[in-house]
Design a protein around this nucleic acid. Structure first.
Length: 560
RNA sequence: GCGCCCGUAGCUCAAUUGGAUAGAGUAUCUGACUACGAAUCAGAAGGUUAGAGGUUCGAGUCCUCUCGGGCGCACCA
């Protein structure tokens, strides 16, 4: 918004260079209450520099502010409060949003550099649980935000298709599995085998030894192990793709862990060359100063997660030349990423600085982590299905003649689930609650979608002409909508800087709320002379809501 | 034991990154559909920000300690 830059400039000039423009812009804030104006600048930090009271500094600055968009300026309790000329600012904002439409809020902080995002990354032969949902929707949204900020993105689904778990599954399948039952419902059957294995292994530790043995065979190319692995993998990927399709999420790469099998030796050699490897209790490790050592090779010579992640990082840098590399993975793996990053740094890779673990809290059930091993998980597929059914029921109740009901129900149902996840700050644990997830009222995805649909139908009914000349809006009630619209680019910036999609989720709720209040108090279509002007506001709201929802990975149906 | 995350209204969460009087949703109660879409809106009520110190003009936010919860900590990923 231009006005903000103007105020920064005026304050900057009146401070004789004591603060930079960036600092001033950072300090400018939105006052808490309306009567304090539309922009505020606190002068407390300046009191020492100028050896004056904050209040007298504020008065001084206030007296210097003159601008065609400013109505009046007050100095109150050490703050400079700026009141904007609402009619003029309203017109500027609405014109800008109307002109740029879905490009409103685009930023150029990425400057075309590449950011890789490692997210979703479900494990083969395990069902897609609620836990994986978080990584999936957060990663997807971060990718969309990054693109809006001018980055090029590479979305990587680092499938968990390697590791000792396969040894376990192979052992379990050979002992208790039946081919035809597994063919019928592969994921459920594999989960049963996995759970059964862990029950038995508690009393019979030799099973774990067998599992490690079979994993070693798999790494050495044993034919039976290999063909079972391929089979399990195919079945799982098919199952996952159903879910991605429902959520509307795509990837640029499905290179999983197995992809790096032939790329690990090089890393081990490099570590050897740099004298970073040490033997410890028969295993090969990289000792680290303030962290536990990073395990590279097991006693029996087979590889570990860290080994593959090292290979993956190098591969990604060499192939994508990333500036930033984000790992959207649960916070229970924060130690692993600290180790990974430290090892890469010790190897001398400058680009390691661009890597970041975007951690998030877990989905808890009854206050506890859900455990695949014990079969204590909630299947995402079932939750999605329930949400879609409920959305369908709502449509049949409220709008039975709607076209393309199935599609809309899918958009609303999945929207509720995605939004429920993204509105919480990443780092918080989320207690699993089907009831909360299936709520369509209040601060929810469907609330925002509903607001968008409402705006859409106003535009159709009022025959909005986008490019016509509009006289200004003079509704008092429009102001809070206009200020919200004005903040959108800031919200994008914050979401990007903090890798925090919840900023956008909260924002679209606020904008919806402001618009619904406006809608409740102003009859948009009644007065023909004001209709097009008011519709231009409605159009701005619709465009920004749609864009905000898109950045979260939600659809914005025209009707619902 | 050590490390990381967290503790705000009955419940679920915010709080412009240290700013003015801590705000929403939900649940409860009340009001608004022959009304541009009631998946909505208006109103009531709900708080010693876990507790104690400290830093400063100012602390829910930063530091220390205590209590409580979650997750990690060598051959799983």
């Amino acid at each position: 918004m231009k006005i903000k830059k103007d105020v920064v400039e005026i304050v900057f000039n009146s401070l004789e260079g004591q603060l930079s423009r960036e600092q001033i812009e950072h300090m400018l804030e939105k006052p808490q209450y309306d009567y304090m104006g539309d922009l505020a600048f606190p002068c407390f930090t300046l009191a020492k520099l100028f050896r004056q009271s904050p209040q007298s500094i504020a008065s001084d600055i206030a007296s210097k502010i003159t601008n065609p968009l400013v109505e009046k300026v007050e100095a109150v309790r050490g703050y400079v409060n700026v009141f904007l000329k609402r009619d003029k600012v309203t017109n500027e904002v609405i014109n800008e949003v109307n002109r740029s439409a879905q490009e409103y809020g685009n930023l150029d902080i990425g400057r075309g550099e590449v950011v890789t995002l490692d997210f979703s990354s479900p494990n083969i032969a395990k069902p897609f649980s609620m836990g994986h949902l978080r990584s999936t929707v957060i990663g997807n949204s971060l990718a969309l935000v990054a693109e809006k900020c001018g980055y090029k993105t590479v979305k990587i689904n680092h499938i968990g298709d390697w590791g000792t778990q396969f040894g376990k599954l192979i052992v379990a399948y050979r002992l208790w599995g039946k081919e035809d039952t597994l063919r019928q419902d592969p994921i459920k059957e594999l989960l049963k085998l996995y759970v059964h294995f862990h029950e038995k292994a508690e009393h019979d530790p030799s099973l774990n030894d067998q599992a490690r043995e079979w994993f070693k065979k798999l790494e050495e190319g044993n034919e039976e192990a290999r063909s079972l692995w391929t089979w399990f993998r195919e079945e799982s990927l098919q199952e996952f793709s159903k879910i991605y399709k429902k959520l509307g999420i795509t990837f640029d790469s499905y290179h999983g862990e197995a992809f790096y099998n032939d790329k690990m030796q090089r890393i081990v050699d490099l570590l050897e060359e740099k004298k970073m490897l040490e033997q410890s209790e028969g295993a090969h490790v990289v000792p680290l100063e303030d962290l536990p050592p990073c395990l590279i090779r097991k006693r029996d010579g087979s590889t570990l997660y860290a080994t593959r992640d090292l290979a993956a990082a190098v591969y990604r840098q060499e192939n994508y030349h990333f500036k930033k590399s984000l790992y959207v993975v649960g916070n229970e793996q924060s130690l692993h990423f600290q180790q990974l990053f430290t090892v890469l740094k010790k190897m001398g890779y400058e680009w390691q600085k661009g890597m970041e673990h975007i951690s998030f809290g877990m989905m808890l059930k009854d206050g506890k982590k859900m455990s695949t091993r014990k079969g204590k998980i909630v299947l995402l597929e079932e939750v999605i299905q329930e949400a879609i059914s409920l959305a369908m029921k709502n449509i049949n109740d409220k709008n039975p003649q709607l076209e393309a009901k199935e599609e809309v129900a899918r958009h609303v149902g999945t929207g509720a689930i995605i939004f429920h996840d993204l509105k919480h700050h990443r780092s918080n644990d989320i207690e699993f609650s089907l009831e909360d997830m299936l709520r369509f009222e209040g601060e929810t995805g469907p609330y925002v979608q509903y607001t968008h649909a409402r705006a859409s139908s106003l535009l159709v009914k009022g025959q909005f002409e986008k490019d016509s000349d509009h006289v200004g809006i003079d509704d008092k009630e429009a102001w809070s909508v206009v200020t919200q619209l004005m903040y959108f680019p800031n919200v994008i910036k914050r979401a990007s800087e903090n890798s925090d999609p919840s900023q956008i989720a909260k924002y679209v709720v606020e904008l919806s709320r402001a618009f619904n209040q406006y809608y409740g108090s102003v009859r948009v279509l009644d007065d023909a002379s004001k209709r097009q002007a008011r519709l231009s506001l409605v159009y701005s709201v619709k465009a920004v809501l749609k864009e905000g929802l898109r950045l979260l990975g939600l659809q914005a149906p025209e009707k619902m």
